[in-house]
């Protein structure tokens, strides 16, 4: 659609004007887009974070083997170390004493780690080995073998957590998708209705425009502008909500719940990515909604 500057100005003016003239229909359409995109946005924020957490877990999948605290520390260490060295597919073996274990544990709690000082006298943590497999996929298998070694009390491969996270994500993804598609269509329907009202209200103008030889594109443009604006404003609202909400959530998790090890994505690149996606979808919904009405009700 080639278009000159002066005409573009006119289309934007006309499109904006009818946004206000349609009042409640505009509010309804914008709300529908906003709610749809809010759900999409919250879901995306969640999904991005789960992905981030899962991949950080995957990257350092290792088997933690905790030793039996009821036997002599040295006997246990030497026996297990010897057995571990016999295994295939082991890349690295690290011994962590219970003192080091406590230090790591405290580090996770940051400033509040001092609360654990009392444990230093009476450290109940076991000694442990951290075994890194040659490939992440072999971790689980390796873990099962290590479990059978004498004096190994308990192992942790991180595999369960990963699996659970994936299960939750895929459930949320399916439910979210159904919701979003349903709401998306509602939004498109509402936008096309709003545009229809504009078209009806402008019947006379459109008739005269056709009569004096306005091109079809010229007649269509203001309606596209209107639909696009609805989609755009509808996207801005959830972006703001997510921006404020996520910043608050981050502080809440870290300060109130002290979950320092729950490693959320930083706000900045995340909100930009989400904004782009939401604005993209918003514009798509807006253009599609107006296209439906223009096709059906603008007989040109």
């Amino acid at each position: 659609m080639p278009i000159n500057k002066q005409a573009l100005g006119r289309h934007i003016r006309e499109g904006t004007r009818s946004l206000f003239r349609n009042g409640w229909m505009t509010v309804a359409s914008v709300s529908a887009v906003a709610i749809t995109l809010l759900i999409v946005g919250v879901f995306l924020t969640f999904a991005f974070n789960v992905n981030h957490i899962v991949s950080s877990i995957e990257n350092d999948v290792e088997v933690k083997a905790y030793l039996d605290v009821t036997v002599d520390r040295n006997t246990a260490k030497q026996h297990v170390e010897a057995e571990l060295k016999k295994l295939d597919g082991v890349e690295q073996i690290t011994f962590i004493t219970k003192e080091e274990g406590l230090k790591n544990f405290k580090a996770k709690f940051g400033e509040k780690g001092d609360l654990l000082n009392s444990l230093e006298k009476d450290n109940f943590l076991p000694d442990s080995f951290v075994v890194k497999a040659e490939t992440p996929q072999k971790t689980e298998e390796l873990g099962q073998k290590i479990k059978t070694i004498k004096y190994v009390k308990k192992i942790n491969t991180g595999g369960d957590t990963t699996k659970k996270l994936f299960a939750v994500t895929s459930l949320v993804r399916t439910v979210g998708l159904v919701f979003v598609i349903g709401l998306g269509f509602t939004a498109i329907f509402l936008i096309s209705n709003t545009i229809k009202i504009t078209i009806m209200a402008r019947q006379n103008e459109i008739e005269i425009m056709k009569l004096v030889g306005a091109t079809n594109n010229f007649i269509r443009w203001p309606f596209f502008v209107e639909g696009t604006l609805i989609g755009f404003v509808g996207a801005l609202i959830p972006i703001l909500i997510i921006l404020v909400g996520y910043a608050y959530l981050q502080r809440y998790i870290q300060v109130q719940l002290s979950l320092y090890f729950l490693d959320l994505l930083p706000l900045y690149p995340l909100i930009l990515q989400i904004s782009l996606i939401l604005i993209g979808i918003g514009l798509f919904i807006g253009v599609w909604g107006s296209l439906i009405s223009v096709r059906r009700f603008l007989r040109i």
């Binding site: 006379n204 005269i208 004096v212």
Partner: peptide, 21 residues
């Protein structure tokens, strides 16, 4: 006649030129 009631005489006539850019 088919004039646009919200526009002045001048604007009604000008409308025909505006919409053909």
């Amino acid at each position: 006649f088919k004039l646009l009631p919200r526009l002045t005489v001048f604007e009604n006539v000008a409308f025909a030129l505006e919409v053909i850019e």
